[in-house]
């Protein structure tokens, strides 16, 4: 599909990741490699652990045990202390995240939202941050609203700004957690188009989604999660035509019947 994936070393490497919420075992010994420029979609039933897996990668959830490695930064889950926090910070700088609920900062204009990270976190020169932000806002088609406040934007517009905000941190990997699930149906397309563009520009992406069309068209691999495990890992074409696990088949049938 896109060139140059095969030869790459993994940019995200998850080894033996376990996550408990209290006594609930949510992620069970997950190991996963994602290569540079690869687009990986995660699907699976509600509660299967998709969000938790994604959030363990940038430590929004602290793994109970296991190792997370992003672009050479290797962090042991379940550790504490200053050194650990430093490594976690480095991982967060290498990952951008897009949330279902957008989470734009309502007290800042679109442009301020986008330059906040580079200026405050990275200490980037403000003029440089603005030109970078404007470039990214332009590429998601939101430059014309740069002085507007989030309250005045549609859901689709908010999510496109949120994508620009994440991109302006110049991450190595983008994590999307159901980026279109909070949108009215007619606004989903514009966000998916932006995501396709980001993928085409060579970004490594992990996407939790119910958009099977997107997975089929854009993903290099689709992972199916079930009860805290990856129960299937295949190219979209294989997965959709010849699912191995009966749970995958059931899931795909559900999507086919448009039930989500």
């Amino acid at each position: 599909m896109r060139e140059g994936i095969a030869k790459m070393t993994p940019i995200v490497k998850i080894s033996n990741l376990d996550k408990y919420f209290g006594r609930l075992h949510v992620l069970k010994d997950i190991s996963l490699d994602v290569k540079e420029r690869e687009v990986v979609c995660l699907i699976g039933r509600s509660g299967s652990g998709k969000s938790t897996l994604l959030r363990c990668i940038n430590f929004l959830e602290e793994p109970s045990s296991g190792i997370i490695e992003v672009d050479g930064v290797k962090v042991d889950g379940g550790e504490k202390g200053k050194a650990h926090r430093g490594l976690v910070h480095n991982i967060r700088l290498k990952t951008g995240m897009v949330f279902q609920e957008f989470n734009l900062f309502p007290h800042m204009s679109v442009l301020e939202n986008v330059i906040e990270g580079p200026v405050i976190v990275k200490g980037m020169d403000k003029d440089k941050a603005i030109s970078l932000a404007e470039e990214n806002l332009d590429s998601v088609g939101m430059l014309f609203k740069k002085d507007e406040y989030p309250l005045r934007l549609s859901g689709g517009q908010k999510q496109r700004v949120a994508i620009a905000r994440a991109l302006t941190m110049q991450p190595k990997v983008m994590l999307f957690d159901e980026p279109t699930s909070a949108l009215d149906p007619e606004l989903i397309g514009e966000v998916l188009n932006v995501m396709k563009k980001v993928a085409k520009d060579g970004m490594t992406m992990l996407v939790v989604t119910h958009e099977m069309g997107f997975a089929r068209e854009v993903a290099d691999r689709v992972l199916v999660m079930g009860d805290g495990e990856i129960i299937e890992d295949a190219k979209p074409k294989t997965l959709f035509t010849r699912p191995k696990d009966p749970r995958t088949k059931a899931l795909i049938d559900r999507y086919r019947s448009g039930e989500n």
Binding site: L93, N103, F105, G117, A166
Partner: peptide, 11 residues
């Protein structure tokens, strides 16, 4: 979500 967005960009 506001806090998480801030933490995710490294604040």
């Amino acid at each position: 979500g506001q806090r998480e967005a801030a933490i995710a960009i490294g604040m």
